[in-house]
């Protein structure tokens, strides 16, 4: 059961309400996406911690139904 771009965006948004999110479907199979997430909650965090916040927002789907999510995260400039 794949995921839609909208689903990914909604889940991230619910955990990071201030986030500006873009989600791009890489393969059209609902399993390979690229996403950029900009949120104040990332400020001062290492990249690993930032990505872990996004993975937590996806509630265990990362590495499961969601095979690949190329992530770019940052705090607002």
């Amino acid at each position: 059961m794949a995921m839609s771009a909208a689903e990914i965006e909604d889940m991230i948004k619910s955990a990071l309400p201030d986030a500006r999110i873009t989600v791009e479907d890489l393969a059209g199979d609902g399993e390979h996406y690229a996403a950029t997430v900009v949120s104040e909650q990332f400020r001062g965090l290492s990249r690993v911690r930032q990505h872990q916040l996004v993975y937590a927002a996806l509630q265990g789907r990362m590495g499961g139904v969601l095979h690949a999510l190329a992530l770019q995260t940052s705090a607002p400039e």
Partner: peptide, 15 residues
């Protein structure tokens, strides 16, 4: 961390 590959340098998870 939910995916593979995983790189470690001097025992520390890098990404």
């Amino acid at each position: 961390w939910p995916t593979i590959p995983q790189l470690y340098v001097k025992g520390e998870f890098v990404g």
